[in-house]
Design a protein around this nucleic acid. Structure first.
Lengths: 364, 364
DNA sequence: TTGTATGCGTTATCAC
DNA sequence: GTGATAACGCATACAA
């Protein structure tokens, strides 16, 4: 493998000259510049990023921590973040923690060793692990963080609004007896509060037996729906904590012989890919997942590139897109469907790039 | 940020001693070892992987190239590869190429600069790009490669067998007029050959109008199904090139008022997550996606760690799991469903870890 | 405009 | 067992 010294020797110049050419710095004659470039091509030389990073103290890498990339909620977000990082010349380390604090810690350690410029944590774990990262000079963005401290970037999803929106939708449809399946964690709690508030505003009394505790996964949705349908007076509609819960609930409802949404309506949250193509299409309070990832990474890189932002506390407020999926008619199907070209940004799935409210708040 | 020198100074020993402790090398008294470890904890010292890699010429990083992580085919594979890499102490760079040769090239360049120990390419692009990687000392595993050369690791999916299996399933159900929607690329061609062979063996004549060219995506499935249903004599069953095509075909069939599978049966390929929970559940020829990723990465790391394997040509033959999804009955739903806990390895989705046929072929 | 020297934080090769 | 020293490949300050 060729080094910068080899290039310099073959080109008959000094390493400084080669380095200047590589980094597009001024002060090199066009002739030498061209000659050096040619030699570089010739030797198939690729600068050693490790050496470069070590010397310049900039690693040009970032990390992303997700519970698991196999959960369909994350790929869109990761893709958004990766696109932005790549654009800026940063390579992305992907880490799957399974929500396990130990794995979380292990990955944070690895990323610190690699001296990542920043890290996007979607799996907040212990916030104290992140303090080490911040001290070591990395920028950190957290989604769904319970607290905020230091110069942390937080990605805020308005869980309350989500629950409120979903519930209002069902109330608007005339439902009065509405169940809610959601976790007890921070996100689930917010959604549940929104649900309760919407019910209260419309003068509908909420009953404890209609509130099911769950995980953000399919089995929880199945178990939850089952439990609700066993009630003496079962609900005619269900607010699911997310799309996976909705999918689980729907499969169970159908297995129990209920028609969806005629007998029981279900509304989910997130709008993960394929949700719109499910049968029946899952009505869902959509979030701009791609954009969330993109903006988190952008915030990280902004701070990496502009140290002036250091010490400010950044929060993103993600807008909600209320998306009511419908079965496409034969006519509409002449056109590519929403969510069709999975893997590319498709207008209509709500994942095309769009501006997001962005607040910079100086730390008091 | 503390360095090894700081640790050595505080501990009152030399850097060599600290290094030895870090790398668990012999020749250090237990007392010093303990003291050094304590200081490391105390200073919150993390070795600089960049410096370590530069000096030792081992980067402890690998790269994975996928068209897009948002395509539900890839997350399982990536997860498998990442698990294996992490286990071995390697961090994973994730790259989304969108199948664009330029992006592909750009990413390969970036990974070379980072001196990755290996790279898993699922998006073969130009094989010549990979030669540079091989020359620069990286191990390369390719899935779905058209050719094989040098000491390349190839991940073989038996496309012919897939098409054959899918078609036989439909023939067994009594169908005779069977359409096929598949791409013209390498994978699609193989599946199509399997389809043709199965038809031939059963004495069913294949008609050109039943063969639809497509992409491996949902819109293609929609367009393809549409085209098939417009025929004077439409098929009663469809072999879809993959699950996305199957999903597209099913949505269109339903929009056209056809019942699935009563009027038209559809069989897909791959068994991506959620496919089994679709309505109707998508009957699919399943591949062990997680294992494919895991074995590719294992092969890469095997070669990195054991140079003796260098110069051998490795091929994986992935076994097929014929999976006929059915609607779960109420009784079965007491148990977590197949594919339920997305994001964890769940027995029943066919993604639990299992041995895979593994051939080592010395290069002639 | 170009060349030279020094250091980034580690590991490896020597002596002690 | 332990300590000094060179080298990994590059970037930067400074001299020419």
């Amino acid at each position: 493998v060729a080094t910068i010294v080899d290039v310099a020797r073959v080109a008959g110049v000094s390493v400084q000259t080669v380095s200047a050419v590589l980094n597009d710095k001024a002060g090199i004659s066009e002739a030498t510049r061209a000659r050096v470039r040619h030699i570089i091509q010739d030797l198939d030389y690729q600068p050693n990023q490790l050496a470069s990073s070590l010397r310049s103290q900039r690693s040009r890498t970032v990390g992303i921590l997700v519970p698991s990339i196999t959960n369909p909620y994350w790929p869109e977000i990761v893709r958004g973040a990766e696109d932005v990082a790549h654009q800026a010349g940063y390579a992305v380390f992907l880490c799957n923690t399974d929500g396990d604090p130990d794995k979380h810690r292990a990955y944070v350690r690895v990323l610190r060793r690699h001296r990542v410029a920043g890290i996007f944590v979607t799996d907040s774990g212990d916030l104290e692990d992140l303090e080490g990262l911040l001290r070591s000079g990395s920028q950190v963005a957290v989604s769904g963080a319970k607290g905020a401290f230091g110069s942390l970037i937080t990605l805020g999803v308005d869980d309350y609004q989500i629950g409120y929106t979903a519930t209002c939708h069902l109330l608007d449809l005339g439902h009065r007896r509405i169940g809610c399946i959601a976790p007890l964690d921070h996100a689930g709690e917010g959604r549940r509060r929104g649900y309760a508030q919407a019910m209260r505003e419309r003068g509908v009394t909420t009953v404890d037996e209609l509130l099911i505790h769950a995980q953000f996964d399919i089995p929880s949705g199945q178990a939850g729906a089952r439990q609700l349908m066993r009630l003496a007076w079962p609900p005619t509609a269900i607010v699911a904590g997310n799309d996976l819960i909705a999918i689980g609930a729907i499969t169970t409802l159908k297995a129990l012989g209920k028609r969806v949404p005629e007998d029981v309506a279900v509304v989910g949250v997130d709008n993960i890919p394929l949700a719109a193509l499910y049968d029946p299409p899952i009505t869902t309070v959509a979030q701009p997942l791609y954009e969330m990832g993109a903006f988190a990474m952008q915030a990280i890189l902004d701070r990496v590139l502009d140290p002036a932002l250091e010490g400010t506390h950044t929060t993103f407020a993600t807008p909600l897109i209320v998306r009511r999926s419908t079965v496409a008619t034969a006519e509409e199907m002449e056109e590519p469907q929403p969510g069709a070209a999975l893997g590319t940004r498709t207008p209509g799935l709500g994942n095309e790039h769009q501006p997001v409210a962005h607040k910079e708040v100086p730390i008091g």
